[in-house]
Design a binder for these strands. Sequence first.
RNA 1: GGAGCAGGCCAGGCGGUCGCUGCGAGUUCGGGAAGCCGAAUUUCGGGGAGGAAAGUCCGGGCUCCACAGGGCGCGGUGGUGGGUAACGCCCACCGUCCGUGAGGAUAGGGAAAGUGCCACAGAAAACAAACCGCCGUAUGGGCUUGCCUGUGCGGUAAGGGUGAAAAGGUGCGGUAAGAGCGCACCGCGGUGCGGGUGACCGUGCUGGCAGGGUAAACCCCACCGGGAGCAAGACCAAGCAGGGGGAAUCGCGGCCGUUGGCAACAACAGCCGCGACGGAUCGGCCCGAUCCGUUCGACCUCCGGGUGUGUCGCUCGAGGUGAUGAGCGAUCAUCAUCCUAGAUAAAUGACCGCUCUCGACAAAACCCGGCUUAUCGGCCUGCUCCGCGU
RNA 2: GGCUCCGUAGCCAAGUGGCUAAGGCAGUGGAUUGCAAAUCCACCAUCCCCGGUUCGAAUCCGGGCGGAGCCU
Length: 133
Amino acid sequence: MSEDTTTSKPQRQGFPKSSRLLTRADFEPVYRFRCKAGDGTLLVFALPNHRTSTRIGLSVSKKLGNAVVRNRLKRLLREAFRLTQFDLPTGLDLVLIPTAVDKASLVSYQQSLKRLSWKLDRRLQTPPPEPAT
RNA sequence: GGAGCAGGCCAGGCGGUCGCUGCGAGUUCGGGAAGCCGAAUUUCGGGGAGGAAAGUCCGGGCUCCACAGGGCGCGGUGGUGGGUAACGCCCACCGUCCGUGAGGAUAGGGAAAGUGCCACAGAAAACAAACCGCCGUAUGGGCUUGCCUGUGCGGUAAGGGUGAAAAGGUGCGGUAAGAGCGCACCGCGGUGCGGGUGACCGUGCUGGCAGGGUAAACCCCACCGGGAGCAAGACCAAGCAGGGGGAAUCGCGGCCGUUGGCAACAACAGCCGCGACGGAUCGGCCCGAUCCGUUCGACCUCCGGGUGUGUCGCUCGAGGUGAUGAGCGAUCAUCAUCCUAGAUAAAUGACCGCUCUCGACAAAACCCGGCUUAUCGGCCUGCUCCGCGU
RNA sequence: GGCUCCGUAGCCAAGUGGCUAAGGCAGUGGAUUGCAAAUCCACCAUCCCCGGUUCGAAUCCGGGCGGAGCCU
């Protein structure tokens, strides 16, 4: 179901600024929508953004480590999104929050990102959006 | 060969693919008469974290505020000389302590200006002191008749014991026993001479000795110190509500005007000056100074509301590298040469291959100089001690 | 990024440089009771860590670690 969006163009796996959440005004609605899913390594918030693309924002707690550790987690998450962005549902704003340091790797983040985002996408599609808005 | 001391340096490398950032060029679009300006970019090129970027412990630059003055306080530093923009940093030297040594450590002014404190133990802990002991003497007792012992008075700081600390240490003489009582050496105080810019060192004479510790206790002395910090600050745009509450809410004098009045004068309004009160600033307090206010209001203060976006500040600097010269050194001078991160939900990563010593601690956020703390492994230079051989 | 403050038992905390570091709540053990509650007794401390000053440090000084708060 994700193949219909990108069939003709050669997929450039870039990661420009237009696919990131940048300001507090971008982040606050995602948190307030309270639609989230997580496994042991990653926590994902989602909100439909009425665009053709999916954007992500990152939030890394200071409890996970020093600046070097936190920067590495952010780079791994960006790389995971960059490599899997055409296998993800479209039209969402996602906030990614890593919750564990020792299990962090590119492969596990790619798998978690795909599984959790599709799970959230199904939850947003199938029921009418009756929960608290 | 082993053990060690001091100083300096490196912080995996190479190649390929994808991706991020900002700079330059190109292309496209828009504006303009043009130089050019703005935007986009899935085009190209080269640049892109540290020795500690960290902790925020000191010192400066820079920015805004303040910038009559005086007194009292407050904080910091503390051997001497030098270096520096400055420092609590660095260098050299001095003293003390530690180490066989190379070397290391050092908040290292004043206790003879004053105040405070010194628990427990101990006889006594500060205008110092006699518990045990030792010695002399007076007197009593015992008996083996020259010894033992009790009490009083006096002498004594050598010995015991307490303590972190008890009137300088060792030796000889001396004495009833002792004691700087005397002498020698060491220590200490005073004084002279010599050396050194100085801290201080050496030495002569002299005094038998003054005096506990603690100033990272108060304090004294000397020197230094305005406050806040790039979330400083400036500009542009957008937007909200110049919203609500509170304290204080006078007096005298002069001038002029209006009204009333024959006039004296009275009432009202305005301006000026002085005082009082209130507020702000002068880092804290007091004096004092300046400014503002005293009835729509302004200022102050409290509670709220909006924006919390863009541009500048933002990287050429007490800068790096090299050479020469001055200096023991820290460092400085001259010349040549180079431009080497400027992000803003915040840029350096992922994958593959080869290779080595198999990679630690750790991410700029205005910029520098230091200190401190973390740190795998390795390299270089100089030096010390021990053992063996020549 | 900058500024300020705080660390004492599981929790709340007092503590002029000097006794075995007060006290309350909780916990454990015991006494009391027919059994409990209440009460009484006892136990429970790396004074955040490392150095220094001092005869002696929870206290004074320096460094580190951890945790809060404020500033656009």
